[in-house]
């Protein structure tokens, strides 16, 4: 999966039983891809000693504060590994 800039994506809602870098506040919410930041080892695998770790594209994804919190006019941008994301259906 390679996601084009501008694609709307949803951060996965699940709650993994291990270390992850998808903050709770973004889970289940919809944001827009700004750009790809290259391919990087997946922290979930590195933290658990999975060798070799999966290597995935990381995307800068911009969320609207209103979508995250129900209030606010700012945006919040996170960098998220591709397995943290699904294309908005």
């Amino acid at each position: 999966m390679t996601l084009a800039n501008g694609t709307w994506v949803r951060a996965r809602a699940g709650d993994p039983a291990h270390h992850t870098r998808l903050p709770r506040y973004a889970r289940g919410h919809v944001g827009q891809i700004l750009h790809c930041e290259g391919r990087w080892p997946l922290p979930d695998d590195r933290a658990r000693g999975v060798v070799p770790p999966r290597v995935e594209a990381v995307y800068a994804v911009r969320f609207r504060a209103f979508d995250l919190w129900g209030e606010g006019a700012h945006t919040v941008t996170l960098a998220l590994w591709e397995s943290y994301l699904e294309e908005r259906r």
Binding site: R21, P23, Y25, G38, A65, H74, T75, T77, L78
Partner: peptide, 28 residues
């Protein structure tokens, strides 16, 4: 969650209508 309030605690008040873009360093 409330960047404008946080900035005001630092003594920074932005011009009216300024958009705030927060970057959470969650990856590399």
């Amino acid at each position: 969650r409330e960047p404008a309030t946080v900035l005001s605690e630092f003594g920074l008040t932005l011009p009216e209508g300024t958009q705030i873009a927060v970057w959470d360093a969650s990856a590399e």
